[in-house]
């Protein structure tokens, strides 16, 4: 599945090395503070991670997450379809973020040593 296609924020050299750009995780994180439809997710992810997901990438990941039971659709607003985290999705997101947090702490410890 294609990944991000466009960077949304001006960068310093090396800025993108630390950017986490796994689309499913970005979507789960974006839905962490409440339901959103596709366009709102894209903008939220730009603000949160500096990565702009392409429409195809976004919906490929949405389909996968829905199939895995990590997100679920709500009633459509016009033709915009909002999604929210399921209980399982919330658990997976927490576990993933905790792992990343540990990883970041370990990396920082190594730098300070």
């Amino acid at each position: 599945m294609p990944r991000s296609t466009r960077r949304g924020v001006a960068q310093e050299p090396g800025d993108d090395l630390g950017r986490y750009s796994d689309p499913p995780l970005l979507i789960l994180a974006s839905l962490g503070d409440g339901p959103k439809h596709g366009h709102a997710m894209i903008e939220d992810i730009v603000a949160m991670a500096g990565t702009r997901l392409g429409p195809g990438t976004l919906y490929g990941a949405i389909a996968r997450l829905e199939r895995d039971g990590l997100i679920e659709p709500l009633a459509a607003d016009d033709r915009r379809q909002p999604y929210r985290l399921t209980a399982q999705g919330r658990r997976v997101l927490k576990a993933k973020l905790a792992t990343l947090h540990e990883f970041a702490r370990a990396g920082l410890r190594k730098l300070e040593a």
Partner: peptide
């Protein structure tokens, strides 16, 4: 997903990268 995906595409600005991204996806 067709209807909601069309709506998302309508909300997005046209760009070569977006089109290539959709074709690849």
């Amino acid at each position: 997903y067709g209807d909601e995906f069309c709506k998302l595409l309508e909300d997005e600005p046209v760009s070569t990268r977006a089109i290539v991204n959709v074709i690849a996806a």
